[in-house]
């Protein structure tokens, strides 16, 4: 499975805490409480999990969920090999066997019937029954289930079932405030202080357009892209135009307005 990665704990990933989320997550991890992380795109959910996996010294198994994800994609399946069949564990099963954090990214994208597979792992039984092989795995103490989703895209027919939602402790993430975001841009890109500050202020203003004019507001990730482009010598206005305005909207009038706001902010 190519979407499973085991992170080495050699060099720690940078994460700037916004609140008491690190403490909450650590306590949840030590007490075998599954965690749900919700927040807008690019606000640092995945980075946070990577960071926490390193802090806790646990392996991280990431599954990017999509519409065709079946229960067997999570648990595992029989594959037909040369003349016989063999069983291959899915990422969830591997995490349960080996211990570590299983992280289901954008969990609402997955089909509802496949998500039910995680239910027995999220209550006090902490077991994973595998029907196909007849196994009943008991999760070790260092196994932890984390799911994330973005409450922003409320598709009419998508959403997390309340019965699934209620099995998790939930952490709400949002974009950082101007000072914190400036620090993040600085640490990530080593650009100039004034640029980082301007980008953070710009983002703060553009975020007011969420709901009203934009479906999603500008993410910290996009700001880092823009800062990187500028650092490489691209003209600031075109860097922000490409990394921010055009990424946020396809509507010409909106892009034009965003570009004007960018021009008003950057000197």
């Amino acid at each position: 499975m190519d979407n499973v990665q085991a992170i080495q704990t050699s060099k720690q990933t940078f994460y700037q805490a916004q609140n008491n989320e690190i403490e909450l997550f650590q306590t949840a991890a030590n007490n075998q409480v599954p965690v749900l992380i919700k927040g807008p795109t690019g606000c640092g959910k995945t980075r946070f999990i990577q960071h926490m996996a390193e802090v806790l010294g646990r392996k991280l198994f990431t599954v990017a969920c999509h519409e065709d994800l079946t229960a067997s994609d999570l648990i595992g399946r029989h594959l037909i090999g040369d003349g016989n069949t063999y069983w291959q564990d899915g990422p969830l099963t591997r995490a349960v066997r080996e211990g570590g954090i299983c992280y289901l990214d954008e969990v609402v994208e997955a089909r509802k019937d496949s998500i039910v597979a995680i239910h027995p792992l999220t209550d006090d039984r902490r077991i994973l029954p595998i029907d196909r092989t007849g196994e009943l795995l008991k999760a070790p103490d260092d196994f932890m289930l984390v799911v994330s989703y973005n409450p922003g895209y409320q598709n009419l027919l998508k959403g997390l079932k309340p019965s699934t939602k209620q099995r998790f402790m939930a952490l709400r993430f949002d974009y950082p405030n101007i000072e914190t975001e400036t620090q993040i841009i600085l640490k990530e890109t080593h650009c100039e202080m004034s640029l980082a500050k301007q980008l953070a202020e710009l983002a703060h203003h553009l975020r007011q357009l969420k709901e009203h004019d934009l479906e999603e507001s500008v993410s910290t990730r996009l700001l880092i892209y823009a800062a990187n482009l500028i650092k490489q010598g691209i003209n600031p206005l075109s860097a922000c135009g490409a990394a921010i305005a055009e990424s946020l909207s396809d509507d010409l009038a909106v892009v034009e307005a965003l570009n004007l706001v960018i021009q008003a902010k950057l000197v």
């Binding site: 553009l206 007011q208 357009l209 009203h212 004019d213 307005a257 965003l258 004007l260 706001v261 008003a264």
Partner: peptide, 15 residues
């Protein structure tokens, strides 16, 4: 009018 209205809101104008 449309880009102008978005500009107004982005700069902090009353929505």
């Amino acid at each position: 009018k449309r880009p102008l209205a978005i500009f107004f809101r982005a700069l902090g104008g009353d929505k």
